[in-house]
């Protein structure tokens, strides 16, 4: 695991609260297949406190971590990092 990934896994999770569900991340995402396979969905589940569901979400396997979503988000949500963090949670379990 690279140093940044370690930090991502063990540090505080990227916040999702600021998301307004505008859908720009999904529109720019090359792997998005709405309605279910979409980064916006994943962010939403985290927002609603359904973290377990988010960490099992099939979109986590679609994401290529290209980071386009992260650049486009008007509310500063680091979508790709959040997705990656959830991948870590899925495979490595919750941090700590």
């Amino acid at each position: 695991m690279s140093a940044p990934d370690r930090a991502l896994h063990f540090g505080p999770p990227p916040p999702a609260q600021a998301c307004r569900q505008c859908g720009r991340c999904a529109s720019v995402c090359p792997r998005s297949r709405p309605p279910e396979l979409s980064p916006r969905r994943v962010v939403r589940l985290v927002q609603l406190g359904l973290r377990d569901e988010a960490a099992r979400h099939p979109f986590l396997h679609s994401c290529r971590f290209c980071g386009k979503c992260l650049v486009k988000c008007p509310h500063g949500v680091e979508v790709a990092r959040l997705v990656k963090r959830l991948v870590f949670e899925q495979f490595l379990g919750p941090p700590g």
Binding site: Q17, A18, Q21, Q47, L48, G49
Partner: peptide, 14 residues
């Protein structure tokens, strides 16, 4: 809106 939306534990349900 932005301030409140960013708060942990405030959930906007559409």
């Amino acid at each position: 809106y932005r301030d409140v939306a960013a708060m942990e534990g405030v959930v906007f349900v559409r």
